[in-house]
Design a protein around this nucleic acid. Sequence first.
DNA 1: AATGAATGAGAATTCATTCAT
DNA 2: AATGAATGAATTCTCATTCAT
Lengths: 207, 207, 207, 207
Amino acid sequence: MSQVVLLSSGKREQTKLANRRAILDAAREVFAELGHESATVRDIIRRTGLASGTFYNYFRSLDEVFEALADDGAARFRPILRACWEASNSFEGYLRAAIQAYFDFMADEHEAWQSHRPAGEKHPHMRVQTPEMERVFEEVRDAFLQAMEHDAAPRVDADYLAAACIAMAREVGDKMLERRPIDTAAAADFAVKLIMGGIPALPRLST
Amino acid sequence: MSQVVLLSSGKREQTKLANRRAILDAAREVFAELGHESATVRDIIRRTGLASGTFYNYFRSLDEVFEALADDGAARFRPILRACWEASNSFEGYLRAAIQAYFDFMADEHEAWQSHRPAGEKHPHMRVQTPEMERVFEEVRDAFLQAMEHDAAPRVDADYLAAACIAMAREVGDKMLERRPIDTAAAADFAVKLIMGGIPALPRLST
Amino acid sequence: MSQVVLLSSGKREQTKLANRRAILDAAREVFAELGHESATVRDIIRRTGLASGTFYNYFRSLDEVFEALADDGAARFRPILRACWEASNSFEGYLRAAIQAYFDFMADEHEAWQSHRPAGEKHPHMRVQTPEMERVFEEVRDAFLQAMEHDAAPRVDADYLAAACIAMAREVGDKMLERRPIDTAAAADFAVKLIMGGIPALPRLST
Amino acid sequence: MSQVVLLSSGKREQTKLANRRAILDAAREVFAELGHESATVRDIIRRTGLASGTFYNYFRSLDEVFEALADDGAARFRPILRACWEASNSFEGYLRAAIQAYFDFMADEHEAWQSHRPAGEKHPHMRVQTPEMERVFEEVRDAFLQAMEHDAAPRVDADYLAAACIAMAREVGDKMLERRPIDTAAAADFAVKLIMGGIPALPRLST
DNA sequence: AATGAATGAGAATTCATTCAT
DNA sequence: AATGAATGAATTCTCATTCAT
């Protein structure tokens, strides 16, 4: 009797992974609909069809899901960002690729979120500074720093620049999502041109 | 003998206003120290010296204070923004004045918040889109539109531009607050140059 | 200068009486709509347009209004009942007059209550044994006792009989109010005949 | 070996039922002792030894327990009433059996209530018209209607008659409970004779 | 006498977490 | 590993009553 054994693919393990994912997905929806303050474990678990106790087989607390979720977002976007870096051969190329990728990512996520949200229910627009964001920030800043070292970009305040770029991308991205049709290319073009145009005008670092 | 009579200035009205302000101030402190998730009505009311029930004479819930607080900041900044507009005679002048004013405002508020915060505690990074904030956005966008009409600026997507500028200002401003000494002039210079440099490169509107 | 001075009719006194009545009326409405458990002083005072503190110039507590209200009902019905007694020259005459009067009273009150009640809002049907009811009970029982002493009625258990008559009147009265048109005469006829027919069949007291 | 298997009889289900009953029983006691106005969820739950939150696993609010309680009484009496109907072979037989059964039921319940009540405390005189009570009313009225169809009783207003009988039974029953010794047979005799004697005198329906 | 904001005890209710099944 | 009822500390919120104006 032959038996194929894949890594972590017993029935048990499959269920475990599926449950973990089910909880994460439900949590994302709930956080989106209710905001982080009012979301409860029960709200989340109710959507999964699992029992409340089961939640604790996968996460130690609500906060842990929240962090896992943030990491989840990071885990999905950061490789993309990394790929942009590796695939590009110029500073502008990187910036354009990264912003375009981010806007596409937003549009995708947006649709995923929308699907389960009762129409008209718009929770107040809130943002939390997650670990995910922090790491994305660092990655972007480091990309800038490296570009500067290789003289691919003028030596400016990379910290401010990264903050400015990310903030801009987020906010322009939000506006983009409100328009129909959603045009990520046009939004990316806008953002890239604003940044690339502005950089040469920035004050140079004395060092 | 002349006597100045203010509108609604009986002793009762004064107390009411003072109490409302006391609650708002206490709430600002508590939110800063504890974060929004763990702040409770009791935490807030305890600081005011008022009775717990009194809270509900002024706000229907914690969320309502929170919104009022966010609105309050925007409401206090709007007149400043307006003054910048009226005092400036060029597009760049307006932009510079507005951003400088905003950074100064942030620095001031920041100190006010800091005063009671145990060191090392980062204030929570959360944002609500309140009506008053919406109006700030509109004011900025309209300033851009008017500049464009008078050929003081190229005709670009004012909505995206306003969003980008505000986002950038917020985020660069946050970074600025983390540095010592706090240098609002340098931060403003950075932001203004990035924006003013970038605008000419933006895609023009076909109209 | 002539000045007519009526008993208790200065402007002050008129207002006082009017306020007291306003509170009682509002209370009757509120008790009817909300039931006694959930009715609050604020509910009552809100309808009067008076300030909450004013309530305490007229009543020491919610319970006091409630009792006053019960007494109010008694104060209005008991004279009628008494008049029935005095006007009647036979036992049956008294019973018929009393029941007819009670049904008329119910119909009147009913309309008064209805006018202010939001349609469809039917609080669960509840009854409280008020002092009013107790006194009415005693009056009815005493009328029976007196009739028995004068051999106008057979000697039966007056306590049970009074209870039975009042209960029947209440319940048949309720049913009557649900029918259209409201026919107090028919209902009274029914009740009187049932009682008068039943009395001769009752077990006689051995005394 | 035969084994009786009850529906839903895991240990869990048993506990749930036991808890529900424990809460209802405690509620009955508390309502009796404190009256409905002052009874609180905590008063009830304290007696059960359960945790306060557990209350809400079974009932959404105090009112819901109250209704459940009222309904419960009617629900337990209905089968008895039904049995009276089936066991009787005359109209009077049914009426007598039903009233006797009701008075016995009251006496039993009464003792159950009394057991924990401090002497002198009168149980609050309140009545709610619950769905189950409504059904009791309908059952009685239908019994009357059927008797009339079979010429076992004169054709009178069955709606009024049922209302009158139930009201009388309730009130005479209450008086009965106040006397010592409690004599259900005498009370039933009184009620039955009053009703049976009165019926022939009632106005006939024209139909 | 009227006002209505303040009071604060105490009631209702929620919810993360545990644990017996 | 899943279940889901029980737990009870913590929180929100209500409301009769007081009292300075």
